[in-house]
Amino acid sequence: MLAFIIRRLLQSILVMLAVALVSFGLFRFIGDPIHNMVGQEATAAEREQLRQDLGLNDPVPLQFARFVGNALRGEFGLSYRMARPVTDVIMERLPATLELALISGIGALALGIALGVYTALRRDGWLSQFIMSASLIGVSLPIFLIGILLIYVFAVELQVLPAFGRGETVRIGWWTTGLLTESGLKSLIMPAITLGLYQLTLIMRLVRAEMLEVLRTDYIKFARARGLSDRAVHFGHALKNTLLPVITIAGLQIGSIIAFAIVTETVFQWPGVGLLFITAIQFVDIPVMAAYLVLIALIFVVINLIVDLLYFAVDPRLRVQRSGRGH
């Protein structure tokens, strides 16, 4: 088990280095950084001086090593557009994205599992059929359309929810939260639904398919033949086996919720890192883009690591390796 964790950690470091190389490549290959920094009137000598000062004349591997070293200390330089340290800008925006992603992720997971189990157990009920048909809408409607529809209905017509922004926030240390104010919570509802709907339907359909599969297995038949109650069979035996593949998918989905909150944040003008990234692209703000890339990769790597550890916790076949076998 320890060997497994160490191996996974080493793999994670490799992945991060690869991503760092791509981020570093952004600086080198999307335009000349000097050109972006100095004005039109700068002389060739001044440019060369700046190039020397910034270490841009050093060999590429050395520059990359410097980039990685800085990244490890959380330094990604100054934002071209805002002239502030990139790390500060991102940290300011991160709580908004994380809160949004977490709320919609947890909601999607909880509702998705519950509905998936329900539709699997009551396969032929009219409510199950309805939920399954409705879930097709969630799968097929593009995110921005759902967001715009929600805004039209609840913000424009009914005027019960705010159309954009995060509402009032409360500061706790460096973290700003919108979960403690009424306007903050109200503002969260529509973006969370928009962001979570697709994941919800995906998880629900996955849980349903897995559950139907598990309900057909011999150990479920045997559990019934032993007279265990439906509750014990469905929730004690079937559900736990269903969740193994769900853990993997859910982990990846939570990662992508954070990474691809961009569309939702744009539709609702949600002040998170996704919106920051979109503006960074518009203004070719390379340090911000590079830092965002590294941050998202880090989140994915961490989530994958957690998923692998969860597998160990749930599945004894991985936990106990080759002990006591062979009778």
Binding site: T217, D218, Y219, F222, A223, K240, N241, D315, P316, R317
Partner: peptide, 10 residues
């Protein structure tokens, strides 16, 4: 019939 699949693996 099949003892390999009759028991819940978890």
């Amino acid at each position: 019939q099949d003892p390999l699949t009759s028991l819940n693996p978890l």
